[in-house]
């Protein structure tokens, strides 16, 4: 009797389940997205709030942005961040392309160890990489006060180290679909190595080069922990400046500076995603 009752109950549950389960799943998805985005959206909205008390909406204003751009230290920090990110992008692209070609084209002893080593900067906790750079530059006696932009070199070296593995991964994934027969055909028709690179490799890799470059740019622009340890007191980047402001208090200026950084980041990431998507679509047509 007891058993019959239980199985009836079970049947009832499984009968209503499809209608019950789906809404709950979708609610969980919605709640998670809300959890992820509410703080960020609130932060952006309140950068336009005409009140220092960051909690009650008092009307729209751009004064914190104006204030920000007349704050020399903030502007300098922002410029530093951009310069670092640009040079890091170029360096990471060069190193990343070379690494991708190396791993794609050649078999050599201890290759898997080499592959593992490239991923170390990505796996090891950021703080360990940060202090390794701190100790390293201190040990070789890197001159403390160089003129701009040479004083940014330390940070650029550090950023390139953890950015180029990402570039290498993106490029290598694209190299797999490179048609080597095209290259052979071009060579048979008298193309030299330079022509092959310019007319076959470059067009094929272009979307991945841009995407990889944008990833490196974003990673460099966003980095806080490694920069925090690598940079001396004389070089300030935007995240470092925001950090010192955050330690102080929650103010609309921080919201404004953060919003600028968020917008730059999202623009470059969306471009990267869009380009990847385009290249994937094209790849499926070929």
């Amino acid at each position: 009797m007891e058993k019959v009752k239980l199985s009836l109950f079970g049947e009832f549950i499984s009968a209503i389940k499809p209608s019950l389960r789906n809404p709950w799943l979708h609610i969980s998805l919605l709640v998670t997205l809300l959890f992820l985005y509410t703080p960020i959206i609130v932060l952006i909205i309140f950068s336009f709030n005409d009140s220092r008390r960051n909690i009650v909406w008092k009307g729209f204003t751009l004064k914190y942005y104006k204030k920000m751009f007349s704050n020399e230290i903030l502007v300098e920090a922002f410029l530093n961040s951009i310069v670092i990110a640009l040079i890091t992008t170029i360096l990471s692209l060069m190193l990343g392309v070379l690494t991708a070609i190396l791993l794609w084209r050649f078999q050599f002893p201890l290759k898997s160890l080499y592959q593992g080593m490239i991923m170390i900067p990505v796996i090891v906790p950021e703080i360990c990489i940060g202090i390794a750079f701190l100790v390293f530059f201190n040990w070789i006696g890197w001159p403390p006060d160089l003129i701009w932009p040479l004083n940014l070199a330390k940070i650029i070296f550090a950023h390139s180290l953890f950015c180029f593995p990402f570039v290498a991964i993106v490029i290598r994934a694209k190299l797999v679909s490179l048609n080597r027969e095209c290259e052979e055909a071009a060579k048979d028709l008298g193309a030299n190595a330079w022509h092959v690179y310019r007319d076959i490799w470059f067009p094929h890799l272009k979307p991945s080069l841009i995407a990889g470059g944008l990833l490196a740019f974003t990673l460099s622009l966003d980095d806080f922990v490694i920069t925090f340890f690598t940079s001396g007191p004389e070089t300030i980047t935007l995240p470092i400046k925001i950090y010192s402001m955050v330690r102080f208090s929650v103010t609309p200026e921080v919201n404004a500076a953060s919003t600028v950084l968020i917008v730059v980041t999202i623009l470059s990431v969306c471009t990267a995603i869009f380009l990847q998507k385009e290249s994937l679509k094209k790849g499926s047509f070929e």
């Binding site: 960020i40 806080f224 925001i242």
Partner: peptide, 11 residues
């Protein structure tokens, strides 16, 4: 991709 520091601050 959004800065870790900014997300923590938003929280």
């Amino acid at each position: 991709w959004i800065n870790l520091l900014i997300r923590t601050y938003a929280l």
